[in-house]
């Protein structure tokens, strides 16, 4: 089971730039989603071009179909704000390599079945989602060391020192941030992870 918890209203407001398209994932049965709180908050957000509320946005084929019905509203928006677990945010970001995609939730783990997720995106359920600092690519799962402050010196020809078949997560992040004009995200304050909320540590 997972819990998606809304980030604070101040944090969400600080993410907004221009017009916003909203995606809600009412998910799989394994995720608890704060539906009422999310709806109440979305009513207060300015410049919303449209809202897509659906389930299983982690399924790219399914998501593609849903997105196609909102093309105009998405094109009009400067960014997409996603209310889902970390996998959902990454799947959406994968569809829009040139648009700012932000996570409105943090994802926590609960014991039990973790749902079905695509292989290319994974959420570590760390409870302090980093996707807004990294262009929608998770540094915890895309980097073999789970680094949150940038690339180590171990990448060779774009590949990770641990696995020559694995692309360096931080090179992907760097490219994505350059693509969406958000390299300034790399100037954020020093990040120190809070393992008290991490799935590995908090799971009993």
């Amino acid at each position: 089971m997972l819990i998606t918890e809304l980030k604070s209203k101040d944090t969400i407001l600080s993410l907004l730039t221009g017009k916003v398209f909203i995606i809600n994932c009412h998910g799989c049965k394994e995720v608890w989603f704060p539906e009422e709180d999310a709806n109440a908050l979305q009513k207060e957000l300015p410049n919303v071009t449209g809202i897509l509320t659906t389930d299983y946005i982690c399924n790219p084929e399914h998501l593609k179909l849903r997105l196609s019905k909102h093309e105009a509203a998405i094109n009009e928006a400067d960014m997409i704000l996603v209310f889902s677990c970390g996998v959902g945010v990454q799947t959406v970001a994968g569809f829009f390599p040139e648009k700012k995609v932000c996570a409105a939730c943090d994802t926590y783990a609960l014991p039990g079945f973790q749902g079905v997720t695509p292989l290319e995106y994974d959420c570590k359920q760390c409870g302090e989602c980093y996707l807004n600092l990294t262009g929608g690519i998770c540094p915890l799962t895309a980097c073999s060391k789970g680094l949150v402050n940038g690339q180590c010196g171990g990448a060779k020809n774009g590949k990770c020192e641990v696995d020559p078949n694995m692309e360096c997560g931080w090179e992907r992040i760097q490219r994505r941030l350059a693509q969406i004009g958000r390299l300034d995200a790399l100037k954020c304050p020093v990040q120190v992870r809070n393992y008290a909320t991490d799935a590995e540590v908090s799971k009993k």
Partner: peptide
């Protein structure tokens, strides 16, 4: 490094 931009970003951090 072949990703010198990422290295410079990390250096700045």
């Amino acid at each position: 490094s072949d990703s010198v931009d990422a290295q410079l970003a990390k250096m700045e951090r």
